[in-house]
Each structure stands twice: as structure tokens, then as C-alpha cells.
Amino acid sequence: MTAIQISGLTKDYQIGFWRKRPWRALDGLSLEVERGEVFGFLGHNGAGKTTTLKLLTGLIFPTAGTAKVLGKPVGQPETFRHLGYLPENPYFYDYLTAQELLDYFAHFFQMDAGLRVRRREEMLKLVGLDSFRDMPLRKFSKGMLQRIGIAQAVLHDPEIVLLDEPMSGLDPMGRREVRDLIVQMKAEGKTVFFSTHILSDVEALCDRVAILNRGKLVGVGRLSELLRQRSGVEAVVECASSCSAELQHLASKPVTVSGGQYRLEIQEENMPRFLAFCQTEGVRLVSLNPIRASLEDYFTELSQSASDGEHVSSGVSAL
């Protein structure tokens, strides 16, 4: 069974003070998240990531489309027994202590007093807040709030954990700890669906990713598949300056020159021509390494091409 099933999910908000007009925050999103995978949800600010997560938790209602969690419609109390959610920039009741907050939330699940205390203690320990249990949340730093937010999200040992920008505002140590927590959740067989725009976290953690741009899904798949499409080689050569024009012709990106060496990226289909050129012109091949484009490149290009497409289509409709 798929963990999360989203089909044609669309959300319009009404904007404007006097003359209300619809603004589409999410446009026909369809995707599936398998059980046990860590799924990254990428996009710029305002791309529709938080909107999607709020739709999955029933905090807002879709204009069109459906979303199911473990085969059941979202928003049902039964669904929430298997779902944990960390909101973006979480804020909790600041008059409570960390311990009281977890106790309060534990009351909403069918836990007896003994289990409640045990889970509370485990969670405080898990997120490293057991020595701050009696401190009011109003005195917590942003990183500590993020940690208590994760603790409340996994308090009831859910199968699926939704995290909205879990690394936001954390220092490097804090980010490392949250990463470790996500790895641990995956090891426990949980499905983790998290939104972020920190690409290094996605590369380090995710089995699959989806990329949103202005409310539309522009890419989805395994990282290895997405990045393989952009593979090639990076060559470093030494040659006479007269060769530079031909090298630039063979390269897929502008050639850089440093210390008399030319560094260039070559697509796989141009490799025979490149090697032949090296042989005939006496070019000294210093190194030849396969390149794997970073997620950052992929993300930037996808976003760029999606924006260009939008401009073209809006230009066409204007004509």
C-alpha cells in the first residue's frame, strides 16, 4: 500500500481586499509516496510545499483533487493516529514546559498513563531535551522549538511523518541532529515526507524527490535517475592556445582556463570526437572524470525551464 496518494490536488486562495480574485497556490499535483521511503519535497519559497503539507493534514481544504494517507482520506481522526506533523517555524503554547506539552498532546492518543510517561521520556531523550523538561517553552531557542516540534510529531510512533522545513533556522549541529533523526526514522521503517529548499539535505537523505515550481510539479523521481540524465565527463587538458576554439565547440559549458590547463565538460555523445581531436592535435589529456550533476544544477535548470515555459505560454495566450 502506498503511504501517501495525491491526485490532481489544487488549491486556490482568494486574494485582494475589495475585489477578491483567486490565486492558485497548488495546481493539479499528483504523486505517490511509497511506504518506508524518505521523500523530499523541493521548491522555492511560495512554490506550494507548505500548502501541500497543510492539505495533507486537513488544515486547509482543496479546491479540487484528493489526497489519501494509508488509503484513507486526509483529515480523519483515524488517519492522524498514523501521521505525525511538524509545522513550518513551529510555535507551541509558551506557557507550558516541554514535558507538559508532550503530556498534553499525548492525551489525544489512546495511551494509558504509563505509556504516556514512557513515550514522553523517550521523546525528550531522543531530541536531547531531557535536561530542559521543566523549562517553559517561551525560553526555548528556535532550534529547541524545532526539536520539541519533532518530538511531538513522533510522540505516538506514527508510520508517516510530515516535516515542513525541519532544518529551517538550525545551526550546523542542529541540522546534523535532525538529519540523524530522519535516518533513524527511516531505519525504523517510517515514511518521511519533508519539504525543504536545502538541497544538500535532500541529497544526503532522500530516496526520491519531487520538485515544485509555482504550484506545479516539474520533476519527480529517484535522485540517481534524475541526476543520471545529466551525466557526462569533465576533462582537463593542456594544449596550445590555438586549440581553445575547437575545445569550446566540443564542450557543453564555457571552458575555464587555469595555470595553462583547460577544464571542460563534455557530453557523452561528443566523447569520440573529443578523443579524436586530442590524438590528432597532440593535446595532452591530464584527467578525465565522470561528472554527476548536482541536485542544485538540476533544480535550477528545472525551475528555470518551467519559468521560461510559463513565459512562453503566457506570451502565446496574450497573442
Partner: peptide, 12 residues
């Protein structure tokens, strides 16, 4: 203050 977000994602 958005304290409701975490609460309403519980079985309530």
C-alpha cells in the same frame, strides 16, 4: 500564533 497546526494534526 499557529499553535493550532500541531494540535489539529492530532486525532481531535
Amino acid at each position: 500564533k499557529r499553535s493550532l497546526y500541531a494540535l489539529l494534526s492530532k486525532p481531535v
